[in-house]
Amino acid sequence: MKYFSLLFFLLLFTSCKKDPKNIDPNAYLTAEAQEEFKYSIIRHADRLVKKATHQTKFDSIFDEEYKEKAESSNLLYYYIDKQTGVHYFALTKIAPSLIVKRVATVGKIEYDKEGGIASYEEGFRTWKMEEPELNEKTATLFEKYIEGEDLSSYYTANSKGEFYIEFPDDKTYYDKEERLWKNSQN
């Protein structure tokens, strides 16, 4: 009877653990599809190219410059929630620094029936870091993000000197309608 009880509790404990999610982009997208995905969001996820405005950034005159930005970015993590159809991504790009550092933009997308972007939202952007540190910290944050967990303890004001999330913060928020980061003090 003792062994049966122990076995029962072991089975109960292991069945309560969450299965780790596969966040490898290669599990969802071919190399070609990854390039197409990066290009499809780069006008939202990266800075404006020279002479573009938020009103003109989709004009074809800027296609080549945005193509170069997409090619220089990395799709670090990707996940599709099978229940909701939401696509989650972590895209990195090179950040200005004396040594090579990158920054990650993490967000989610919903597509319409024609495959167009129906909803795009950036959840957070990390501080610039060297790649090994960025990859490790972003994996932790990404998994929490797709689970819908509160990330406020990783915000700069709350992270006790450890750098994870640069924004949102107490001044910067993401405007989902305009698909841009804004400063609440302006």
Rank of each mutant, 00 (worst) to 15 (best):
E130W: 08
I94C: 03
P20R: 10
K51W: 07
T92I: 11
Q83C: 03
C16R: 06
Y154P: 13
A31Q: 10
V103E: 11
K38P: 07
I23P: 09
K176Y: 03
H44R: 08
F4K: 12
F9S: 12
P168V: 05
E64Q: 13
T53G: 09
T105V: 11
K21G: 00
K17V: 13
K82E: 06
K101P: 08
Q34G: 14
A139E: 08
H44E: 06
D59Y: 11
K50C: 00
F58R: 03
E35A: 15
I109Y: 04
D46I: 01
V49D: 00
A70E: 00
E131M: 15
W127V: 15
Y174K: 08
I61C: 01
I80T: 13
D150F: 10
G116Q: 15
N74R: 14
D59H: 10
S153R: 14
T56P: 05
T92A: 01
A31I: 09
F89Y: 10
T156E: 13
E35H: 06
D175C: 09
H44G: 00
L98K: 15
T92K: 10
R102N: 09
K128D: 13
Y120L: 14
E136P: 09
Y66W: 03
Q83D: 11
H87E: 14
Y39D: 01
K108T: 03
S40P: 04
E178N: 15
T172R: 08
D112C: 12
A45E: 03
F4E: 06
I80Y: 00
R179F: 04
P20K: 08
Y3I: 06
F124Y: 15
K50P: 05
E68A: 13
